[in-house]
C-alpha cells in the first residue's frame, strides 16, 4: 500500500460542483485532492453530454458542457488541485476530530480534515448486459473491462457492443484468442470508422466472426461460461460455445459505496444536509450538488456552486480552528487577487 496522502480537503467527484468547490476552498487557503471514478475530469458533463448546450449558468448565456468544465479548470488552476482519476472512494472513516481517512478501490489512502461529497448521481459503473442471470459469471468469465490481456489467451471470446470499447478490445484480443465473435444488434457501429474497417478486414480474412443479434441467455457452471444463446436479427437462435464474455453496454450511474457510509439517505439515493453549510449528519463531511437533499433543493449546477461557497466558509473553521475568517470579495481584495495570480503589482501587500 502506498503512503497516505495528507491534505486539507478530499473532494469525492470531479464534476462541475467539485471543481468549483476547489475555487471557493482555494480562496480560503485550503488544499484539495479530487477523486473520480471516471477516466476524465468533468463528471456527467464530460462523460454523458460534452457537446450539449447549457443555458442556465449565471452570466454565461450559452456554453457546452465540456466548455463549462474547461472554463472551471482554468478558473481553479491557481489552486493546483490534485486529481485521482479512475478511482472510486470505497471508505470514509472518522479517525479524529475532525480527521478522516479516505480509501479508494485502488488502495490509495488520504488523511484530511474535511470530506466533500460532490458525487452527483453517484459513480459511473458499467451497465449489466440485458441478459437474465449474469451475476454468477461476473468477474469469473464475464468482464466489463480488460485488466490483463493474457488471461484471454487461447480462449473463445464473445464481445458484445458496437462502440469504441467493443471494437478496441475486438482488435486487441483477436490475435490472442482461440476464437473471437463480435455480436452487435445492427450493422452500423458507433466506434471510430478506422476501428470498424480494421474489424471488417479481420472478418473478411476469416480471423473473427461477426454476428448481428442479441445474447439472450448464458449457460455454464460455477460462474464458468460454456455457451451463450444468441438470437440473430433474422430470427435464428444459435448456441455459441465460449469461455469468456465481454459486454460493453456503456455506463450507468449507481450510488455505489456512498450507501454504506452511514448516512440516512433520502429516497435511498440522496444525502440530507443542513442549509447553512451543506454539512451532513457527520461534522466535517459535506455534501454538495446533485447528491444532496434539503427542503427546496433544485438539481441545478448553479445551486451546487452556491452550496460549495457556503461549505467552504465552514470547512475553513475545521482546517484553521484558531483563525478568524474575514469575508472578502475577489473584486476588491488584493489578498484574494494574489492567490488568483491576478493582483496588480501596486496592490500587493509589502
Amino acid at each position: 500500500m502506498s503512503e497516505t496522502i495528507k491534505t486539507d480537503i478530499v473532494i469525492i467527484g470531479a464534476g462541475p460542483i467539485g471543481l468549483f468547490a476547489v475555487f471557493e476552498l482555494g480562496l480560503l487557503d485550503m488544499k484539495t485532492h479530487l477523486i473520480d471514478i471516471l477516466d476524465k475530469i468533468g463528471g456527467q458533463c464530460a462523460e454523458l453530454y460534452p457537446e450539449k448546450p447549457i443555458y442556465d449558468i449565471p452570466g454565461i448565456p450559452y456554453t457546452s458542457a465540456q466548455g463549462l468544465v474547461d472554463a472551471l479548470l482554468l478558473q481553479i488552476k491557481p489552486f493546483n488541485p490534485q486529481f485521482h482519476l479512475n478511482e472510486m472512494v470505497e471508505k470514509v472513516e472518522k479517525i479524529g476530530d475532525p480527521l478522516f481517512r479516505v480509501t479508494t478501490d485502488q488502495g490509495k489512502q488520504f488523511e484530511c480534515k474535511v470530506v466533500v461529497i460532490a458525487a452527483g448521481g453517484g459513480s459511473f459503473q458499467p451497465k449489466r448486459p440485458p441478459i437474465p442471470g449474469v451475476e454468477p459469471y461476473e468477474g469469473k468469465s464475464l468482464f466489463y473491462s480488460v485488466r490483463r490481456m493474457e488471461q484471454f489467451r487461447d480462449k473463445r471470446i464473445l464481445i458484445v457492443g458496437g462502440g469504441d470499447s467493443a471494437l478496441d478490445w475486438t482488435l486487441n484480443l483477436a490475435p490472442l484468442a482461440k476464437k473471437l465473435t463480435l455480436i452487435h444488434r445492427r450493422s452500423e457501429f458507433r466506434a471510430a470508422p478506422d476501428s470498424v474497417n480494421k474489424m471488417r478486414a479481420l472478418v473478411d480474412a476469416g480471423k473473427i466472426d461477426l454476428v448481428f443479434g442479441q445474447v439472450t441467455a448464458l449457460h455454464g457452471d460455477d460462474g464458468q461460461l460454456q455457451k451463450a444463446t444468441v438470437k440473430t436479427n433474422d430470427g435464428a437462435i444459435n448456441q455459441l460455445e465460449c469461455d469468456a464474455l465481454l459486454p460493453f453496454f456503456g455506463l450507468t450511474m449507481k450510488l455505489g459505496p456512498v450507501a454504506n457510509w452511514g448516512f440516512e439517505l433520502k429516497n435511498n439515493e440522496l444525502i440530507p444536509v443542513e442549509t447553512a453549510a451543506f454539512e451532513t449528519s457527520v461534522p466535517g463531511i459535506f455534501a454538495i450538488g446533485d447528491i444532496n437533499w434539503y427542503p427546496g433543493k433544485l438539481k441545478l449546477i448553479l445551486s451546487g456552486f452556491h452550496e460549495g461557497a457556503l461549505m467552504a466558509q465552514k470547512a475553513y473553521h475545521y482546517c484553521y480552528p484558531e483563525k478568524r475568517l474575514v469575508f472578502q470579495y475577489t473584486t476588491s481584495s488584493s489578498n484574494l487577487q494574489k492567490k488568483l495570480g491576478v493582483a496588480p503589482q501596486t496592490a500587493q501587500p509589502a
Binding site: G161, G162, G163, H184, R185, R186, E188, F249
Partner: peptide, 14 residues
C-alpha cells in the same frame, strides 16, 4: 435518428 440509434445500443431488450 442515427444518434438515437447509437444510444439504443445501450438499452435493454431493444
Amino acid at each position: 435518428s442515427p444518434m438515437e440509434e447509437d444510444m439504443l445500443d445501450f438499452a435493454y431488450g431493444v
